[in-house]
């Protein structure tokens, strides 16, 4: 038991460094995916056909490409076109772009779930489209999309481990490196699993809180 505690004490600081990178990649890609997802969603509901078609094509394209391929493309292929990104930059960009497709579908569903009567009331008042979106539709859509948005956050946190494939020393990769050098697979990967769980639990509770609040 003492040996186990000693190993945990030894590995924990290294894994913690990985956890910080996991959080950094998750937060960075979350911010990017939120902004891009909102842009695609607004384009799709704009009522302007060519804009909606462009957004639909982008979303379908992103949904059809595995995240890992996108990461490889950004990290290994883009330098051939003169754009060299660090591993962390490429992982934030790759995960952010990939997840923008799912964010977009979530936002679009939220916008379309707002009662059409609200849109009519806003138009009848003389509101133009941008003002109507800002003052009437989006504030109501946010309430609808928050629970699924929380779920996407959880998925992104776990999928950030894919950044390890392009050498980002996040939690999963740090665990693999320790396990490879010490052969303490059970201890190390149990610690990695617990640390992912610790990061996910607040998000799970947040989602549950939002779901309860929306039911009342």
């Amino acid at each position: 038991m003492l040996v186990l505690l000693e190993r945990i004490r030894e590995y924990f600081p290294i894994l913690l460094q990985g956890a910080w990178l996991t959080i950094l990649v998750t937060l960075g890609s979350l911010a990017l995916s939120t902004v891009l997802g909102m842009v695609w969603a607004v384009m799709r509901v704009s009522g302007i056909r060519w804009l909606a078609n462009i957004a639909t094509t982008i979303v379908n394209l992103l949904r059809g490409i595995p995240i890992i391929v996108l990461l490889f493309f950004l990290y290994f292929v883009m330098p051939d076109f003169g754009l060299s990104l660090s591993a962390v930059q490429a992982s934030i960009l790759g995960l952010g772009i990939a997840y923008s497709a799912y964010q977009s579908e979530n936002f679009r569903a939220g916008i379309e779930a707002v009662d059409h009567g609200q849109v009519e009331a806003a138009r009848a008042m003389g509101m133009g489209w941008p003002l109507m979106m800002r003052r009437v539709v989006l504030p109501q859509a946010v309430k609808i999309v928050l629970p699924p948005y929380g779920n996407i956050m959880i998925m992104m946190l776990k999928d950030s481990s894919q950044a390890s494939t392009i050498t980002v020393a996040e939690l999963a990769l740090q665990g693999k490196l320790i396990a490879t050098s010490t052969f303490q697979n059970a201890t190390v990967f149990s610690m990695v699993a617990v640390m992912y769980l610790v990061m996910c639990v607040p998000l799970i509770l947040f989602v549950r809180h939002l779901e309860k609040r929306n039911k009342t």
Binding site: G117, E120, R123, A124, M125, G126, Q140
Partner: peptide, 20 residues
Amino acid sequence: IKKIRTEVAMVFQRFNLFPH
């Protein structure tokens, strides 16, 4: 149409008040 709508008010059967 925007000017017309600011001078022609509309009341709806389902009220359509902004719930937020």
